[in-house]
Design a protein around this nucleic acid. Structure first.
Length: 526
RNA sequence: GGCGGAGUAGCUCAGCCGGCUAGAGCAGAGGAAUCAUAAUCCUUGUGUCGGGGGUUCGAGUCCCUCCUCCGCUACCA
């Protein structure tokens, strides 16, 4: 496998001061699905996620909960690990910013940027509240008595100038614009590219990249009074995973990354700051920043005060992890915001998974089990209808590969299910059950064709519903080595006469919680 | 305010550089079938393609304008 083309893909690194929510789950699933698809297509894929564990907010939250920042980080990291496991999104690595290797990488990145002359010491001015130990933006301030202004907490504020290191971002405007021109799909979907372009064209100011008001972070090389502010610390995480700065590291070949999958709220950091840092440090730039939208609960933004925050683990337990994955990947047009609700999920998984694909596989395999001695049936001469259906199926891999270039995961599933629908229509039209006695050879051919198409679809669907796809391929007797995308581009993959295990439905019909039409209170997150 | 998106059947959305009587899936209604997870298949929509104006032989598809919603407009992880 090491001879295959490397493809490095990451999720953003969640901030470790709270439990995962559905947005994290969505991002993890999307990234995993893309990674799995590339792997299916023969790439050597490194899928990395991580945790952002530094910063003042971590210190505060930990203090409030009577923990050390590290303990809080450990607890949250464990929660994210559990989520990854339940959602079938195993990461090749989880880089935590508190790890030694990451301190090493981030400090080296800083050092190189400094060597390039892009880092200087200056003052970071702002409204500071001693009581809150925090800076506030002008817009956050509230009116106090006598025309004074106060922090949001009501604490008094003062104008202070904190010493801070700055990155010469202003010097990178032209280089960034040139880069965006040369690599037009660097930011995708295109909608997000325009916003970044407009932002950079307006001009860039230097960036404050260190803090001295708290110490839970990576010490600045050569000046221990400062710790790195979030930008360099968090973004360097991506390169830490490749063994940076060791050029001989086993994973060095994975840099530059193929895709950083992120939420639309942090596009700027990844599309502007990160490339600028890398240019400064004379490192290669990632191939693409892949931006996804947000998820809303019945169209409403989820928030703890509204009480509609739902634990993704509860959703996975309730509907099934494949089901949740399928719903999110199929229902949300990639790059756009989406919404979820009990009704939407049940409709989707019932119609597409249980009724369309699940039932197609089951009706086909059950007939094979009963009428073909539990062996792959023999195909006679193929009719025009047989050829047409198979042709559609083996055309799917190329089609899907093309759509993946634009990360149109929903469109990929739509294409696959179009063929699923045609397969159901094919069976209905051919009526193999009516030919059991009159034309047994023809019946076998019909069942062979159907099973072939199911096989191809099962291969294609692996990145999206990995557990069910694995079971289905097992029921078709497809060996592990024959489950690549390339195996779905040719027909006659099933060997007539090969014995098959007794079929079991792969997508059980959603039966609902006993008496309940919605998630029970016990399934809600805090 | 500036820049940029979006407004198409009950719901979610396709409709690229303008061209046959505007589509898909889901939901609803009627029917067929019975291999299968009561799953499947067929039939079924009088949609002002946000409003108005314009260009054109012809516009959902281009131009102008108005209405509505949304995003960005730098240090929040």
């Amino acid at each position: 496998m090491s001879a295959d083309k490397p493809f490095y893909i990451t999720t953003a690194i969640p901030y470790a001061n709270g439990a995962p929510h559905i947005g994290h789950a969505y991002e993890r699933i999307v990234t995993d699905a893309i990674g799995r698809f590339k792997r299916l297509d023969g790439y050597d894929v490194l899928f990395v996620t991580g945790m952002d564990e530094h910063g003042q907010k971590m210190q505060r939250t930990a203090e409030r909960e009577g923990l050390t920042p590290q303990q809080l980080a450990d607890r949250t990291a464990a929660q994210f690990d559990a989520m990854g496991a339940v959602l079938s999104c195993p990461a090749g690595d989880v880089v935590r910013t508190t790890q030694k290797r990451h301190h090493l990488a981030a400090r080296e990145l800083w050092t190189r940027m400094a060597a390039a002359g892009d880092i200087y010491l200056s003052k970071y001015p702002g409204w500071y509240s001693v009581r809150d130990e925090a800076f506030f933006d002008e817009s956050e301030l509230i009116a106090g008595p006598g025309g004074t202004r106060l922090a949001p907490s009501g604490a008094p504020i003062e104008w202070v100038e904190e010493e801070s290191y700055f990155f010469r971002l202003s010097a990178y405007q032209e280089r960034l614009l040139k880069f965006y021109r040369e690599q037009p799909d660097f930011i995708t979907p295109p909608h997000y590219r325009n916003e970044i372009l407009a932002f950079v064209e307006r001009g860039l100011a230097d960036l404050s990249i260190s803090r001295s008001t708290f110490n839970w972070g990576i010490p600045v090389p050569g000046d221990e009074r400062h710790v790195m502010y979030v930008w360099i610390d968090a973004l360097a995480n991506y390169i830490t995973a490749t063994g940076f700065p060791d050029p001989k590291a086993e994973r060095a070949r994975f840099w530059p990354a193929g895709a950083h999958v992120i939420g639309k709220d942090i596009t700027r950091f990844h599309a502007v700051y990160w490339p600028a840092f890398l240019i400064s440090a004379k490192l290669a730039l990632p191939r693409q920043i892949v931006v996804h939208g947000f998820l809303f609960n019945k169209g409403e933004k989820m928030s703890k005060s509204v009480g509609n925050v739902i634990d993704p683990l509860a959703l996975a337990r309730h509907y099934g992890s494949d089901q949740l994955r399928y719903f999110l990947l199929r229902e949300v047009p990639f790059g756009q915001d989406g919404s979820y609700s009990h009704e939407l999920i049940v409709n989707r998984i019932t119609a597409d998974l249980a009724n369309d694909l699940g039932n197609l596989a089951q009706r086909c395999l059950a007939m094979v089990a009963k009428n073909c001695g539990g062996k792959v049936p023999a195909a006679g001469e193929l009719s025009a209808a047989d050829h047409a259906l198979i042709a559609q199926a083996i055309a799917l891999p190329a089609k899907c590969r093309g759509l993946l270039k634009d990360y149109a995961l929903h469109a990929i599933l739509s294409e696959i299910w179009h063929v699923v629908g045609n397969a159901n229509r094919y069976i209905a039209a051919e009526e193999p059950w009516a030919k059991r006695k009159s034309e047994p050879a023809r019946m076998q051919t019909i069942l062979y064709v159907t099973a072939e198409v199911v096989r191809i679809i099962a291969i294609l669907v692996q990145p999206f519903v990995p557990l069910a796809a694995d079971r289905l391929l097992g029921q078709l007797g497809v060996p592990g080595a024959e489950r690549m995308l390339a195996n779905a581009e040719v027909s006659q993959g099933l060997v007539p006469g090969a014995p098959l295990p007794p079929p079991v439905p792969v997508f059980p019909r959603y039966m609902g919680a006993a008496g309940g039409s919605n998630l029970g209170a016990e399934d809600r997150a805090d």
